[in-house]
Design a protein around this nucleic acid. Structure first.
Length: 347
RNA sequence: UGGGGCGUCGCCAAGUGGUAAGGCACCAGUUUUUGGUACUGGCAUUCGGGGGUUCGAAUCCCUCCGCCCCAG
């Protein structure tokens, strides 16, 4: 009897092709739309219905059963709540990593298994081998970073067939299968925030007040409308002109001040050491004699690690070269070649 | 009030008689399953106001307004 796989279908091309490929490979495929967010936001109608329809159409085309799981309450609490709390604390969270960790590869997996599935599948550009997480084959689309907090257990019950393809090939497959979503534009931005923008979104939940923007000489050069809206390394949105561009180098949430510099050599913009909290290792923790690379934000270059040490529940990493705009709250994902070792949250 | 300097797009800033550089900010687009970054494009019929000289002025002259500095 063929294995029963529940595919998380978002209504996009990648997950559509995932379902098609698995069906072609002989799996007993069921499509599932995860309803994580449906609320409209000022200036934007939540597209969940269209996405649901698209996913369902593809399921119909593929002649597979289709169902919807409603995780709105949990998502709201575990992802959105986390995100808002982090911003309030002055950090810059990565809600999509949290979504994968807590919703897709935990709630969805549990629900699917309880529903009779043997495995789940998603449209991520990453590969799974023997419970290990590997980068997607397409270096331009690799999404392994977003999966750096998934467990080995979950990986052993998951499939990501699209990770073996290049993005253009996936589009091509979608056309070949005649899928309704073949030409659908890639989504971008936090799934539920979409076009609205993080600032407008947060404004719905957090009270903010204007504060000072202070430059590298300690001079107040402008006003911002809430320190929590800004992230380290950010350039646009400060509204301060004159001479060179300014980049955010720090924040003081208590004083509600944002610190910027126009000097790209400013020491506050660069770091060679990083401290990671809440470590999560997919298979085994890294070893001090291993040779690892680290990625400190999505699509950032992999950086060479020269030293790694554990101190209780935090890990200290030394880099060969300095990174620009290391940001608290972001995940630092460790790589051993093409394998994702795990990650920690930048302190 | 004497003496000196200045006033060019929201900000910084070229241009000193030949018909408004550039940067920042901002806006749009591209890239992107976070926030960002980066890249591309857009952005002063007009040079503090008024008058004059000239074929022609932001650039010269007069005058008014507003800043700054040194004197006091």
């Amino acid at each position: 009897m063929s294995k029963k796989v529940f595919v998380g279908m978002s209504g996009g091309v990648d997950s559509s092709v995932t379902a098609a490929l698995l069906k072609e490979q002989g799996y007993d495929v069921t499509g599932v739309y995860m309803k994580n967010w449906s609320q409209d936001l000022p200036g934007m109608v939540c597209p969940w219905k269209e996405d649901y329809q698209d996913a369902k159409r593809v399921a119909t085309q593929l002649d597979i059963p289709f169902k919807m799981y409603d995780f709105e309450a949990e998502y709201r609490h575990v992802v959105v709540g986390y995100m808002i709390d982090e911003y309030k604390a002055g950090r810059t969270p990565n809600p999509d990593i949290m979504c994968n960790q807590e919703v897709k590869f935990k709630l969805f997996l549990q629900a699917a298994l309880a529903d009779g599935a043997d495995m789940i599948a998603t449209g991520h550009y990453a590969r799974i081998q023997d419970g290990q997480l590997l980068t997607g084959l397409d270096p331009a689309k690799d999404q392994s970073y977003f999966l750096c907090r998934v467990t080995e257990d979950a990986l052993r019950k998951s499939l990501m067939p699209v990770g073996d393809y290049l993005k253009p090939a996936v589009r091509e497959l979608a056309r070949k299968f005649g899928l309704a979503t073949a030409e659908k534009k890639d989504s971008q931005g936090i799934c539920f925030v979409g076009k609205v923008g993080i600032k407008d979104f947060l404004s719905q939940y957090v009270e903010t007040e204007p504060g000072n923007i202070v430059d590298q000489h300690g001079m107040v050069i402008g006003q911002h409308d809430g320190a929590l809206f800004y992230t380290i390394g950010q350039r646009q949105g400060l509204g301060v002109g004159g001479g060179l561009p300014y980049y955010v180098v720090g924040k003081d949430m208590a004083k509600n001040e944002v610190y910027v510099t126009a000097d790209l050599q400013d020491a506050r913009l660069w770091s060679r050491e990083l401290t990671l909290a809440s470590p999560h290792w997919i298979n085994q923790p890294p070893t001090t004699d291993g040779h690892y690379m680290v990625r400190t934000r999505y699509r950032a270059d992999l950086l060479e690690i020269t030293g790694i040490a554990q101190h209780g529940d935090t890990w200290h990493i030394t880099l060969k070269d300095e990174v620009r705009a290391l940001t608290a709250g972001q995940s630092a994902a460790l790589y051993d070649g093409e394998r994702v070792v795990g990650s920690g949250i930048v302190v």
